[in-house]
Amino acid sequence: MAGQEAAHWKIEDLDFSRIAVDEVRQDENLFYLVASASFIESGSDLYTQNLIDFFRGDDEVTAWLAHHWEAEELQHGQALRAYIRHVWPEFDWETAYRGFLEEYATYCKVELLAPTRGLELSARCVVETGTATYYRAMARCTSEPVLRELASRIAADEVSHYKHFYRFFRRYRQQERLGRLRVLRTIGRRTLELKSEDADCAVRHAVRGRAPERAADTAYVQRLSGRLNSTIRTNLSAGTTLKMLMRPLELPARVQTVIQYPIRQFMDHVFLR
């Protein structure tokens, strides 16, 4: 663990002076992808405290959450905010984020977590799959070198987080004697929530900060969310995403092959909604 911490990248590793500003400044979709992600990542401390409370007594899990996961998630938010500051300096990030945080805090409640620790860890695997997919797609959807580097670094962090949550999940799966059906139900429910209230909340508040005259235009915000979702879907790596989603089920290879198609159809439904 110490070696991983020492090797972790820093914001200073990114050379923001290399940003091809003219290439991305007029890209509205890219702005909203980066801005909404920066809001959610910057609010990670709220969610971390919920998880720490939920896993209190399990020192391995709570220590990792407090000393590694939270710090890395907050660094993601800081780096994305720094990128926005360089490309869209006129955007009042602080004001928009305050509005987002006030609403977002209402979604971060312990009672909204899964009913058991093992099932919550399987849900966390889904969330980390979604975030890794999001940042991989962000890296693919632009040729701007600094954003590609930043998004790739964050995606790698999210995969690392997934591995930790999966390792914890395997321990609790044995303790709680979780059957595949219960895990599958949790994975399915959490996958449907990937486009959840917090993501919609982030987009709304980004619009409020960038184009306040459109903030009350529900149809516009829905169209914008649809475009962002289409960008992610077009650039996601379906095979990798499928493997990450299915891993907590620990199915035999033959069964995995059989159910890949229906799960892919399910994913298409999620990302097309």
Results as ranks from 00 to 15, higher is better:
1 M>K: 02
2 A>W: 12
2 A>I: 13
2 A>K: 14
3 G>P: 01
6 A>Q: 15
7 A>N: 07
8 H>D: 14
9 W>C: 09
9 W>N: 02
9 W>T: 06
9 W>L: 01
10 K>F: 10
11 I>W: 08
13 D>V: 04
13 D>W: 12
14 L>H: 09
15 D>W: 12
25 R>P: 03
26 Q>G: 12
26 Q>T: 08
27 D>F: 06
27 D>A: 04
32 Y>Q: 02
33 L>N: 00
33 L>I: 06
40 I>P: 05
46 L>K: 09
47 Y>C: 08
52 I>K: 13
53 D>T: 08
55 F>Y: 12
55 F>S: 03
59 D>K: 09
63 A>I: 00
68 H>M: 06
72 E>C: 02
74 L>S: 03
75 Q>A: 11
75 Q>F: 06
77 G>H: 02
77 G>F: 07
78 Q>A: 15
83 Y>W: 03
83 Y>T: 02
84 I>A: 12
84 I>Q: 12
84 I>P: 10
85 R>P: 03
85 R>N: 09
85 R>L: 03
86 H>P: 08
88 W>F: 13
89 P>F: 10
90 E>I: 05
92 D>K: 14
95 T>N: 15
95 T>Q: 15
95 T>E: 14
98 R>E: 15
98 R>M: 12
98 R>G: 09
99 G>I: 11
100 F>L: 10
102 E>H: 15
105 A>H: 15
105 A>W: 07
109 K>L: 10
110 V>Y: 00
111 E>W: 07
116 T>N: 07
119 L>E: 10
120 E>N: 10
122 S>M: 00
125 C>A: 05
126 V>N: 12
126 V>D: 14
128 E>R: 08
128 E>L: 05
129 T>I: 07
131 T>W: 03
134 Y>R: 13
134 Y>I: 06
136 R>D: 10
140 R>C: 09
140 R>F: 03
142 T>K: 11
142 T>G: 13
143 S>D: 13
143 S>V: 07
144 E>P: 08
145 P>N: 08
146 V>K: 04
149 E>F: 05
150 L>C: 02
155 A>W: 08
156 A>C: 02
158 E>F: 01
159 V>W: 07
161 H>S: 09
161 H>E: 05
162 Y>R: 03
166 Y>K: 01
166 Y>A: 02
173 R>G: 06
176 E>Q: 10
176 E>N: 05
179 G>S: 10
183 V>R: 02
184 L>E: 07
186 T>K: 11
186 T>R: 08
186 T>L: 01
188 G>E: 06
189 R>A: 12
191 T>F: 08
193 E>F: 00
194 L>C: 01
206 A>E: 02
209 G>S: 00
210 R>M: 14
212 P>L: 05
212 P>F: 00
216 A>F: 15
217 D>C: 09
218 T>E: 15
219 A>F: 13
221 V>P: 04
222 Q>T: 15
226 G>I: 04
228 L>C: 04
232 I>K: 00
232 I>L: 00
235 N>F: 12
235 N>M: 07
236 L>I: 01
237 S>P: 01
239 G>L: 11
242 L>A: 13
244 M>R: 14
245 L>R: 04
246 M>P: 08
246 M>T: 10
251 L>T: 12
253 A>Y: 15
253 A>M: 09
258 V>D: 12
270 V>A: 06
